[in-house]
């Protein structure tokens, strides 16, 4: 870990300007990923810009949905009554993530930017195209049990590790971003994360110095009837082997609208329009769910040790849909 300077920003421009002007600078909110990676020398910054003083707060119902400030903590959002009642999938994804201590520190914006747990990425003794472009990807033929089966490339199969982003991407969340000029733009979360392709070092569409201000989620019938199901090796404090975020609007046994995203299997939070297409307009039956799950995994490209995820992700999705419609 190298020495760094520390700036506590009180205005957005102060923060975004500092990071835009210094390629080695980084924002820090909860720091739960950043400090970890700095200690491992995976990230090296000479300046940390603390954004915790910025007013990116609030968990509120707006005219057409939910707005969450980027600096709200995971635990506060997960346990917020509005979120629990109207957007259960979001609350569940948060409360099944990390540990209570981490959730108390970690911010919503930071969580969406959480970096992969790929062991090759996290150890500088290994080659890694994400960490050191062009150095190679030993995960392809190596210990890839936890790695992605969807959205991978020859240069990278690192799994996006988060839970919240999976729920949000299912529910058509939109991010409000602000750059160093003070200019704001809205980016749908589904377009925010990038698949690795040949540039696995580029993980999002954020410009240098650009900050996440807030997340908005449009309210709909399928947000209230939603759930997040996470399958993991232990009951708490574990990343998903596979997870499913599902929201349904079912009337008279027919699915009117469906939202589906998968976690633990994709190089980014994996919205499955293929599954949604199968579900929409179909009867809410196990056969439909199975067909949807098969569609969601049709493009899967497993490696030696993560082949099980193809079946597990389908089972997870079927289970989530089954439980949601049974409730």
């Amino acid at each position: 870990m190298n020495n760094f300077s520390y700036l506590q920003a009180t205005q957005p421009k102060e923060a975004t300007g500092a990071v835009r002007d210094n390629k080695q600078a980084a924002f820090i909110a909860g720091g739960t990923t950043l400090l970890d990676l700095m200690k491992l020398n995976v990230e090296n910054h000479d300046q940390l810009v603390d954004i915790n003083m910025l007013a990116f707060k609030g968990i509120e119902q707006t005219g057409d949905g939910l707005r969450i400030g980027a600096l709200e903590r995971m635990s506060d959002v997960g346990e917020n009554p509005l979120v629990m009642q109207q957007y259960p999938m979001i609350s569940q994804s948060l409360l099944q993530a990390a540990s209570p201590q981490l959730r108390n520190m970690a911010s919503i914006g930071g969580n969406l930017l959480q970096r992969t747990r790929c062991g090759y990425f996290r150890d500088t003794a290994f080659p890694c195209n994400k960490r050191q472009p062009g150095s190679g990807c030993p995960a392809q033929e190596g210990e890839n049990r936890g790695l992605a089966i969807l959205g991978g490339s020859k240069s990278c199969i690192a799994t996006f590790p988060g839970d919240l982003a999976v729920a949000l991407v299912a529910l058509d969340a939109v991010l409000l971003l602000e750059n160093a000029k003070g200019k704001q733009r809205r980016v749908p979360l589904v377009d925010f994360h990038l698949v690795p392709g040949n540039t696995p070092q580029r993980e999002t569409v954020l410009e240098p110095g650009e900050l996440i201000v807030s997340v908005t989620v449009p309210a709909a019938a399928h947000t209230r009837k939603s759930m997040y199901l996470k399958v993991r090796e232990r009951t708490s404090y574990a990343y998903a082997l596979a997870s499913a975020a599902v929201g349904l609007d079912v009337q008279g046994g027919q699915i009117r609208s469906a939202r589906v995203a998968l976690g633990g299997v994709g190089t980014k939070p994996w919205r499955s329009r293929e599954a949604e297409k199968v579900l929409t307009g179909a009867p809410a039956t196990e056969a439909t769910f199975r067909a949807a799950a098969a569609a969601a995994l049709r493009e899967a490209q497993p490696r030696e040790h993560n082949r099980f995820k193809v079946e597990l992700a389908q089972s997870t999705l079927v289970r989530a849909l089954t439980e949601l419609t049974a409730a």
């Binding site: 150890d123 290994f126 190596g142 210990e143 990343y239």
Partner: peptide, 17 residues
Amino acid sequence: THRDNQFARYVNADLAD
């Protein structure tokens, strides 16, 4: 603990993984 075959090096040497 998973040891990479090519590098003989652990890939999950922490208490999260």
